[in-house]
């Protein structure tokens, strides 16, 4: 764990830059992380991000399938919002852990 300043806030991130505590997140932090990745956030992005955060709070694992069925965006749409890696980028911007396997 290391401390990092994002959008003027001191936050704890892991070695890949994912927030360690989702409660340290705010929309300015999201915007700055997205900027580093090269994504400009729109209202639709935020709708997805808030959905992911709520799901994470309820202990539901992030999968492409679930987002596709969320009613917010279909899977193709998710790829358009977060190209080249929708799971890893959307989770990073949403301040929640990256979906992983066991190794």
């Amino acid at each position: 764990m290391e401390a990092k300043t994002i959008a003027g806030m001191q936050v704890n991130v892991n070695e890949e830059g994912y927030l360690e505590d989702m409660n340290q997140w705010n929309e300015n932090i999201a915007t700055e992380i997205a900027d580093e990745i090269g994504i400009e956030l729109t209202d639709k992005h935020f709708e997805v991000l808030h959905y992911l955060r709520n799901q994470n709070k309820e202990g539901v694992a992030l999968t492409i399938r679930r987002v596709g069925k969320s009613g917010i965006v279909d899977i193709k749409g998710l790829y358009t919002l977060f190209p080249k890696g929708p799971l890893k980028f959307s989770s990073k911007i949403a301040g929640i852990p990256k979906p992983t396997s066991c190794i």
Binding site: N14, E15, E16, K84, G85, P86, L87, K88, K98, P99, T100, S101, C102, I103
Partner: peptide
């Protein structure tokens, strides 16, 4: 997922395996 190894300890310790075995990776 984002790679064959998704946890930092494992990517550090095991990334050599794919190279050694000449396995091409297509993540995400």
């Amino acid at each position: 997922l984002s790679g064959a190894f998704t946890k930092p300890t494992c990517s550090t310790a095991l990334a050599y395996l794919l190279e050694e075995k000449d396995i091409h990776l297509e993540p995400d």
